[in-house]
Design a protein around this nucleic acid. Structure first.
Lengths: 148, 148
DNA sequence: TTGACGAACGATAATCATTATCGTCTACTA
DNA sequence: TAGTAGACGATAATGATTATCGTTCGTCAA
C-alpha cells in the first residue's frame, strides 16, 4: 500500500479545513474527480474514475469518504430517502419533510408550504407530470436529542 | 397454494378497472393494507402486514405487485431516485428534473422553476435547512422513444 | 365437464449495493 | 524509535431487490 500524503492542491486543503476533514491523498483524488463529474454519480461510477488515478484504491474507501464528505457538507445527497423503496397511495397532493439525521419522513400539506412554483415550460422539452418537494432539516426529536 | 379470487370490495375492483390491473385476492389485500398504513412504508413493512391476512404470501409477490401498482399509478414512489446513493458537490443551489421512465436526473436552476415556496414556520417544530424540488415527468428522449 | 393457455403466485437462488470487520500502514508525538 | 489514532485495503457479511422456474388459477372454447 502506498499512501503518499502529498496533498498539493491549495483548494482541496481549504475545503478540508472548512469542513473539518483530514486531507489525504485518496480524499483529494476523490474530491478532484467529483469536480470533473457534473452530474449525479453513484459510488460505483466515482470508484471507476478514481481508480484511474489510484488503481489500488478500495471501493470501501470510496464509500467511507463519500459518507464523510456528505456528513461534513462537502457533498450532498441527491435524494434524502433512497436506501429502500417507499411508496404511498396516490391520493391527495402533498409533499414531505425529511429529517437529515434520522431520515424520518413526514407529510406536509401543500398549503403549509406557502407559495409554490408555477409549473411552466421547462428546458429541454421536459414534459412535467408533477413535482415533489422535500423540505430537509432536523425534526423535533433529533433537535431534542442533540440538545441533551 | 389456495388462491381464492373472491374479490369482494367494490372499491378495489373499481381501482383495478381504472388502472388496468387484474384484480386478485393478493392484490386486494395489499391494497387494503396500504390504506391502513398512512405513512411511507417499505416493501418489508407491507409484507409483514399482508402476511397477517395471507400467511403463505411470498415476499416476491409483494414486490411484484408494488411495482405493478406504481407502474399503473395506484401507488407512487416517495422518492424517484432511490436504488443507489447519488451525490453532487455542494456548490450552487439548484433542483432536479427526474424522468419517470428512464430515471435520468437533470439539473434545473431555481430561476427556471418560477415562484418558489417561502420557507417559513413548519408544523411540529421542524427546523428547515433547505428544500429540494423534484420535477417529475418524461424527458425528451423518452417522449421520442414512445412516439416511435 | 374437460383441456388448453396465459397470467399470477410461491419458493428460493442470484444479484447488487452497502456495511462491517480486521489486519496493516502512516503521520504525528512522546 | 516506540506508541497511538486515524486511514486504508481486502474481503466477508448483510440487506434489499430481482430473476428463475415449477405450480396454480381463472377463463374460454370444445
Amino acid at each position: 500500500m502506498q499512501r503518499t500524503h502529498q496533498v498539493e492542491s491549495r483548494a482541496f486543503r481549504e475545503v478540508c479545513a472548512e469542513h473539518g476533514v483530514t486531507p489525504t491523498h485518496q480524499r483529494q483524488v476523490l474530491y478532484e474527480v467529483m469536480q470533473t463529474m457534473p452530474g449525479h454519480p453513484n459510488p460505483e461510477e466515482i470508484y471507476e474514475r478514481v481508480k484511474r488515478r489510484i488503481p489500488v484504491i478500495s471501493l470501501a474507501t470510496v464509500y467511507k469518504n463519500i459518507h464523510l464528505f456528505v456528513e461534513r457538507g462537502v457533498l450532498k445527497e441527491v435524494s434524502m430517502h433512497h436506501g429502500s423503496l417507499r411508496v404511498e397511495l396516490n391520493n391527495h397532493q402533498h409533499h414531505h419533510m425529511v429529517c437529515s439525521q434520522c431520515k424520518a419522513i413526514t407529510d406536509i400539506e401543500e398549503k403549509d408550504l406557502g407559495v409554490l412554483p408555477a409549473l411552466q415550460r421547462l428546458p429541454g422539452g421536459f414534459q412535467v407530470e408533477r413535482y415533489a418537494i422535500d423540505v430537509i432539516g432536523v425534526c423535533a426529536a433529533c433537535q431534542n436529542a442533540k440538545a441533551s
